[in-house]
């Protein structure tokens, strides 16, 4: 899933709460996944604003218990800790299960002398993530409407004004 085509709908949702069909489909795709791989360029010591904005408008709990593999790209490997200092805390906050090994790719990984190092890091991280996915199994979908209703049903249960 590319966020660039969703840039305008993401900003509209943030400003007005109105969700375009394309963005709604993206939300549903995320909610229906058994795991996601989330990748962003490193911008100014963090993720890109567009990447963060998507997760800011994603409905609450959409990532709860979701296995997530995080990755980032950047001009130099000196920024690789953006994965540990920006992406991992955000996904932990969203109650995702973040795979322990993240993948960072810098300009040098794409240079002519790069060798197989990036491929090996990807393979190792992917193997970890595959084990995590197997261990987690198919993801239990939460019915948030039912969860919302449980609280009011409990309150109404104590209410004698009903018919």
């Amino acid at each position: 899933m590319e966020l660039r085509p969703l840039g305008h709908p993401i900003m509209d949702a943030m400003l007005t709460g109105v969700t375009a069909d394309a963005l709604e489909s993206a939300f549903q795709a995320v909610a229906a996944a058994d795991g996601i791989i989330a990748v962003t360029p490193a911008f100014n010591a963090s993720f890109s604003g567009l990447f963060k904005s998507f997760f800011d408008v994603l409905p609450a709990q959409a990532l709860s218990d979701m296995p997530v593999l995080i990755g980032a790209t950047g001009g130099t490997e000196r920024h690789s800790l953006v994965l540990e200092h920006a992406l991992r805390p955000m996904f932990s906050y969203l109650h995702a299960i973040v795979s322990p090994r993240a993948v960072y790719a810098a300009t040098s990984d794409f240079g002519s002398q790069a060798g197989p190092a990036l491929g090996e890091r990807i393979a190792t991280a992917a193997a970890d993530f595959a084990r995590l996915l197997r261990a987690c199994g198919p993801r239990a979908r939460r019915d948030l409407v039912d969860e919302d209703l449980a609280s009011i049903q409990q309150l109404l249960g104590g209410e004698t004004g009903g018919s």
């Binding site: 709460g17 109105v18 069909d21 409407v145 919302d148 609280s151 009011i152 049903q153 109404l156 018919s163």
Partner: peptide, 25 residues
């Protein structure tokens, strides 16, 4: 808020969906 729909249903009152700020779905 779906709780409001539940409240209206519980008492058999009317339910009014604001409708104007949200997708029809």
């Amino acid at each position: 808020t779906p709780e409001v729909a539940e409240l209206a249903a519980y008492f058999g009152d009317g339910f009014f969906a604001n409708h104007i700020f949200w997708p029809t779905s």
